[in-house]
Amino acid sequence: MSALLSVENLGITFGGLRAVHDVSFSVKPGEILSVIGPNGAGKTTLFNMISGVYQPGSGKVVLEGQDVTGMRPDLLAHRGMSRTFQNLQIFQNMTVLENAIAGFHLTESGNLFADLLRLPGSRGRARTAHQGAMRLLERVGLEASAETNAGSLSYGKLKRLEIARALALSPKVLLLDEPAAGCNAVETEEIDQMIAEVAKSGVAILLVEHDMKMVMRISNHIVVLDHGEKIAEGDPATVSRDPAVIAAYLGTEAAEDADA
């Protein structure tokens, strides 16, 4: 099968600093591709370029054969790209349910006047979004908190809420930036299963994650970044044996594991 999303020689510099340089890879539908690397390796920067938050300095992002480099995030959403954030971007001024409904914006939004006058069309669309949002909240185990203000949720729950909101778009490509950060072992495993299920349904998943066990367990393909450059890629077994990777990243991690 051909690639759904491919990144070609992507790069960006911040005030002379090469944050990301000449990175290429591609993801197929149903595949989980993880981007790993030490702190400051440029993983989130890479995500921000792919999702249109940053304008890449060089290179291309190709989605379903079309060049979408530097396209606005809301237009990328129309084309089937969805993402979560490392440092949580929750609508704190809304309830948990409203956050999930907001994820249905593309299918829910219509005519301003229909909304002002509360016409049946507007109400119908809102009702459909409401039902879809409730199903997603059940899926991530937040249905009991539906009417709670999102600001008062625990970190782990907010992470799951963000995933639910991203899934509401029925994306073709899903970018997950550290979905398991700050979650305990049980929660991590739940998220783990959820990601695998989503991938199985044919969504291409790009994952940035620090939990190495999780990455090794669920990834089909791994791209390793260090100082903004790709130093290795391959399946989990290949990558974990790569000397350059062990030196840059897994070395310290493996040593810690051995101590424990």
Partner: peptide, 29 residues
Amino acid sequence: LAMNLQDSPTGRALRAVHGSEVAARTVGV
């Protein structure tokens, strides 16, 4: 009219912009 708007798709999009512009964009607003 304002109360109709608040709980409508448009109202939610407006409040999403208020809550987080970055996140609003990623859901397609």
